[in-house]
């Protein structure tokens, strides 16, 4: 038992040190994702409290957070220099895709918000 706790502690500290090494750009993306997901969670908590009326507004709000978080994760994957799959894709190109997708997402969100 003590060994397991010790292992977990060691795991966490190694994760933490590894994370500190990541480039800032990626940290910005991570922060953005975290911010989006927090907003999503708050909305879910609200919905749990008062019920799902109006459902379309809830979906809009929730999906705007989750959608943009997902797109940010995609961007992170494409921008991460360590990711060999996207080596030939430039950061700007990925960013352009990100912007386009977000613009479409937010149009849809605004339409569905009601």
């Amino acid at each position: 038992m003590a060994g397991a706790a010790g292992d977990v502690k060691a795991l966490f500290s190694s994760l933490k040190s590894a994370y500190v090494a990541t480039p800032t750009k990626l940290k910005i993306i991570d922060l953005y994702v975290f911010y989006a997901l927090c907003t999503a969670v708050i909305q879910v908590v609200y919905m749990a409290l008062v019920g799902s009326f109006p459902f379309n507004a809830f979906l809009s709000g929730f999906l705007s957070c989750v959608g943009t978080a997902v797109l940010a994760v995609c961007l992170r994957m494409q921008v991460n220099p360590k990711n060999k799959e996207f080596k030939e894709l430039s950061l700007e190109r990925a960013f352009a895709d990100f912007v386009l997708a977000n613009l479409v997402l937010h149009l849809v969100i605004m339409n569905f918000l009601g």
Partner: peptide
């Protein structure tokens, strides 16, 4: 108000 808090958090984080 609560939903705007993460935005502030984002700004702080930046």
């Amino acid at each position: 108000a609560l939903t705007l808090v993460p935005l502030l958090g984002f700004l702080v984080g930046l």
